[in-house]
Design a protein around this nucleic acid. Sequence first.
DNA 1: GTGAAAGCGCTAACAT
DNA 2: ATGTTAGCGCTTTCAC
Lengths: 345, 345
Amino acid sequence: MRRPKRIQRATMRDVAALAEVSAKTVSRVINGEKYVSNEIAERVRDAMERLDYRHNLAASQLRAGTNAAAIGVILVDISNPFSSAVHRAIEDVFRPLGISVIAASTDEDAVREREAVVTFAARRVDGLIIMPASHDHSYLSADVRAGTHVIMIDRPPSFLNVDSVVSDNRAGATDGVRHLVKYGHRRIGFIGDWPEVVSSQLRFEGYEDALAAAGIDIDESVIVRGFDSPADAEGAVVRMLEVRDAPTAFFVAQNVLCGPVVRALRQVGQQRSVAVVGFDGFEGADLVEPGLTVIAQDPFRIGELAAETLAGRLDGTIASTASHHVLPTSLIERGSGELPGPFAS
Amino acid sequence: MRRPKRIQRATMRDVAALAEVSAKTVSRVINGEKYVSNEIAERVRDAMERLDYRHNLAASQLRAGTNAAAIGVILVDISNPFSSAVHRAIEDVFRPLGISVIAASTDEDAVREREAVVTFAARRVDGLIIMPASHDHSYLSADVRAGTHVIMIDRPPSFLNVDSVVSDNRAGATDGVRHLVKYGHRRIGFIGDWPEVVSSQLRFEGYEDALAAAGIDIDESVIVRGFDSPADAEGAVVRMLEVRDAPTAFFVAQNVLCGPVVRALRQVGQQRSVAVVGFDGFEGADLVEPGLTVIAQDPFRIGELAAETLAGRLDGTIASTASHHVLPTSLIERGSGELPGPFAS
DNA sequence: GTGAAAGCGCTAACAT
DNA sequence: ATGTTAGCGCTTTCAC
């Protein structure tokens, strides 16, 4: 038999019968309404326990016309350390409110993002927190109009007027590259995600900004954007270091690429001569030698702020027009970014 | 206004009216039943689009008597790299089946585990995958009887007969400690989680097994189990290294403690003299110097196998008695575990 | 192929 | 302080 249909479970009526009260009284006890005598409440709780009664949220939601007491969270990859920290922060805000969190990964696929939204809308989630893979968010407007609150994180909303919480990707990247310039580098490689990924593009623009400010021309031959696997990134860096006039420093614009770049440098034995600044880094980034200098984001704060904003929309304490939070990044010096370049003073 | 009650959304009746068919016909189109002419199906889809209709899963679930098309996943901490890999693997199995994943963290608190179970039961999830914080799982028996399938991961079920998928924690720990003994260590510190955590206890027993096999007595002064923070672990290791007769090697029984232990060794400058084997390690464990030797688990496989088992229970293809999968661990030599001890041959 | 009627389990609205 | 009635939006059942 596939998917057993009707599962035997005690209903409110069963509980009411056993406790010799009406169904409405049972409902009152469950929902903590007052005007129920202690004696009867006790009798009802007894009956619930004896029957292993479990409240049916679907029926409650349907009749009361409320939403699911759940929010949907759409991330690029729930197993990415940045994403899972965001996820956890969101959970911590909503658990005390009795709101569950349903999450989905997109792997940067806009189609999967839309599928997740359709599923979540069918569940009548109270709100959505989305790290968008798509570039045009207007497809959400019908759901927003229907009352589903949406918060964009990591990347700003486009063609849709909703709240957002992002890191200052462009300025962060500029800081990182300027740091390398300060330490005497002028030939700085850029290793990042595909240009289509908005946050990646912003980081690239930050790289361009810093080079322009230093009067350094862009050289496409030291720029690689987008890899099919971490191993590809490692290989690309190794190849860039083999040619004459190789970069003396790298700016790595994505957390999952930092490991491969460090690995590549070790493979050719240049981890103490070629400088690296990473965007975000990885867990043991302070333990490698030299330590990895990074532009750090605060994923927990991003998730928390997004969740607090959504919670405020849900309970009506936030009723203003869309807010756009841009969180600053911070440069953490650990050694790899302070290796001197040929123009060091 | 707090929590707007009834949200204006087109219902199936609205769609039916616009398409000039009955509600049942709209239902047929949505559920892909046959016996609907193409012409009418097209008309219905048109109407749905024009009204921004979103199917109401709660109503569907209620009337059809089905479950939520969702599963609950209860983990110690969804932001832990091990847990989030498990989570992602579970998502990958259920997404193609149209089943959503709701996750919750317990932080090793059995009360929060039970609260999560109650919430998920109220949602009528199809099944639960639990990394248990509790030690007596009999509280789940009523839900299991009511048809909710439960799979335990990482730690075996107790007082409840359900499927499980765990790593061979005890044997893995024995392998790791035996490895240190082989390289000439006899004074081996143990750094692990609280004894109440079952997987941690099993790893401790594996440590005891290996020492017993080598004829080494247990010395409580080199064993610390349970920390309130990573910094505490780091401090404990530093202190252990300050005394005379300090351990010449450490077995670190939990992934989040590996970083602190490595940090402590560097702090006292002994990372190249004191050997370390970690259980699970961290992301950049191959990039530190020396590389961290670890007993590796396969979190993705654990999640996948648990999810496949649950999916099999849901569709009835698995109907046998409870299965208990014990996945082997593997020793990955990277240097830190091969530093010779005083008894090296 | 399509439709009408009934009711899933709960709670809003209105008694009493 | 408790009960009665009706109906949320959908799908089952049965009719045509």
